[in-house]
C-alpha cells in the first residue's frame, strides 16, 4: 500500500516535471511586445501632459480663485467704507491732501491716523479752546484739507488715550447740524435742517473717541 502510494507520488512528480519541461520554452508571441511598446510610446507622449493637467489644474484654479476672492473682498470693503463719504461729497472735488505718512488716494475720506499725529490727540481743554495753537504735528492733521476750517477734536465721554497709542482712523461723516449744540457749539437756526461735515476719530478698539467739525 505504502509502496503503491510512493509509486503514485513518483509518477505524479515525473508527470509534472515532464509538463514543466514541455512548457518551459513557451513565450508570449511577438505581437504582444510590439503592442506594449506602442502603448508605452503613446503613453510617453500623452500621459505626462494629462497627468500634469490633472494634478496641477486644481492648484491653479484654487490659486486664481483665492486671488480673485481676496481682490473682490478688498474692493468691496473699501467701496463699502468709502460709499457714504463719497456720496456726501458728490459733486465736490476735494483738493489733494498733503502726504502725512501713508496717503490713500483712492479713499480721500479715510485717513490713516498714525503714531506721528498722536500727541494732539491727548486731550487738552486749553488747546481745544484755542485751535490755532496746535503743535506742528497737529497742524499736519489740520492741513489735510487746507481749504477747510475745522474745530479741534472734541473728546467723547468714553475717550481713553491708551486706545489711541497704537493709532487710529479719522472718518469723514455728515451729521445733523443740531449735533453741534451737543458739543456746546453755536447753531445757525436758519440752517438747522442742513448737515455738517465732521471727522470722527476712531481708535484701534473700533470706538469713536473724538470728533471735530469741518467747514
Amino acid at each position: 500500500m505504502n509502496q503503491k502510494f510512493e509509486n503514485d507520488e513518483e509518477m505524479l512528480t515525473r508527470g509534472l516535471q515532464a509538463l514543466a519541461s514541455e512548457m518551459k520554452d513557451l513565450e508570449a508571441p511577438e505581437h504582444v511586445e510590439i503592442k506594449l511598446l506602442e502603448a508605452f510610446r503613446a503613453r510617453k507622449v500623452v500621459v505626462p501632459i494629462s497627468t500634469r493637467r490633472w494634478t496641477s489644474r486644481p492648484y491653479w484654479l484654487a490659486a486664481v480663485a483665492a486671488v480673485l476672492l481676496i481682490a473682490m473682498s478688498v474692493v468691496a470693503l473699501r467701496w463699502r467704507s468709502a460709499e457714504k463719504p463719497a456720496e456726501s461729497f458728490a459733486g465736490r472735488r476735494e483738493p489733494e491732501t498733503p502726504k502725512v505718512n501713508q496717503p490713500r488716494e483712492e479713499t480721500p475720506q479715510l485717513v490713516e491716523y498714525q503714531a506721528v499725529i498722536q500727541p494732539p490727540l491727548r486731550y487738552n481743554p486749553k488747546r481745544n479752546r484755542h485751535p490755532r495753537s496746535r503743535s506742528s504735528e497737529n497742524a499736519q492733521v489740520a492741513s489735510l484739507r487746507p481749504s477747510e476750517i475745522a474745530t479741534d477734536f472734541i473728546p467723547l465721554r468714553y475717550m481713553n488715550v491708551a486706545n489711541l497709542q497704537e493709532g487710529g482712523q479719522i472718518v469723514r461723516v455728515e451729521v445733523p447740524r443740531s449735533a453741534l449744540a451737543n458739543f456746546g457749539l453755536p447753531v445757525n437756526m436758519d440752517r438747522y435742517n442742513e448737515r455738517v461735515k465732521a471727522d470722527v476719530l476712531y481708535g484701534v478698539d473700533g470706538l469713536a473717541h473724538a470728533i471735530r467739525f469741518v467747514k
Binding site: K24, A28, V32, E33, K44
Partner: peptide
Amino acid sequence: GDEEALTVLYRRRQGAVYRFAL
C-alpha cells in the same frame, strides 16, 4: 520613460508570466 528598460524587463520576465497564465 526609458523604453529600452521596458524592452529588457519584458523580455526577461514575459515568459514566466505567459506560462503562468497559460
